[in-house]
Structure formats: C-alpha cells, structure tokens
C-alpha cells in the first residue's frame, strides 16, 4: 500500500532531476531544506529523525542532492522526506515537504475496529511494519 503523505505523494515517484528542481525552488525562496527519515509511516508520526542539520545558506540544489545520496546509502530502506523551512517573520514554518524515498515493499496500515458500548466503533491504525523493532522494519 503506497503511503501518501506530503506534497506530490499521489504522483509517481519524482526523478532526481525533479527533486533537484523542487529543492532549487525552495532555496530560491530562501527556505532552509532539511532531510528526515523514519521507519514508522503512521500518519500521526510527524517527528521523523533528522538526517544531519537543516541546510541553511545553501545556494545550489546539488549540495542537497549530494546529501540525499548519502542518506539513501545509510537509510535507503526507509522513508526519507525533504522539507523547506521558511524562517521569515510570520511564517516560521515548513512550506513544502515531500517524500523522496520509500521502502521497496510497503505493507501499509492495519485498521482495528473496537466495539464500544452502544454499538459505537473506535478505529485505530497501525503500520504493519511497526510490529518489528525500529531499524529492522524494512530490512
């Protein structure tokens, strides 16, 4: 089951050239780009692990793409996303975020229905992959 989170996730995976073009757009807007990864794709898991520091004062997308290549080498079996952070006054938040790497096999999410009193049903979702210990989920 293909996880859909962030911008572009209903499109086919972006090529490296397409990723570079998006990154260059972020840099041209003055946003700092950062790389994050996770092996828990639950939609409520917003805090992914940081790959190095956010890249401030970078001018050219190649610098980010080189770093992404290193991240893929180390954690390429997990989800990796890029985010563009706008530090300007009034925004101070992420303006663009998209997935740039996914596990080869995405088992997806399990949904549990829990019967409550009076025929109410509570729903909860859980990533199948999260059954295994962190770091070994997509190996």
């Amino acid at each position: 089951m293909r996880m859909t989170q962030g911008t572009f996730s209903f499109l086919p995976d972006l090529s490296d050239a397409q990723i570079a073009a998006q990154v260059q757009y972020c840099l041209d807007q003055g946003w700092a780009v950062s790389i994050e990864f996770t092996d828990d794709p639950h939609p409520r898991n917003t805090y992914w692990e940081m790959w190095e520091n956010p890249m401030f004062d970078v001018a050219d997308a190649k610098a980010v793409i080189d770093e992404l290549a290193k991240a893929r080498e180390a954690v390429g079996d997990r989800y990796i996303r890029l985010s563009g952070f706008d530090a300007s006054h009034g925004w101070e938040s992420i303006r663009l975020s998209f997935i740039v790497n996914r596990p080869a096999d995405e088992p997806g999410l399990h949904i549990t229905r829990e019967n409550g009193p009076g025929r109410t049903i509570r729903y909860t979702t859980r990533a199948y992959a999260a059954d295994r210990p962190a770091g070994r989920r997509y190996a």
């Binding site: 970078v58 001018a59 050219d60 190649k62 610098a63």
Partner: peptide
C-alpha cells in the same frame, strides 16, 4: 563539509 555545501554552485 558544511562550508563546501554553501559554496556549491559558486
């Protein structure tokens, strides 16, 4: 390496 990242493209 951080300095080099800033200098890439320039």
């Amino acid at each position: 390496k951080e300095v080099l990242k800033k200098a890439i493209g320039g």
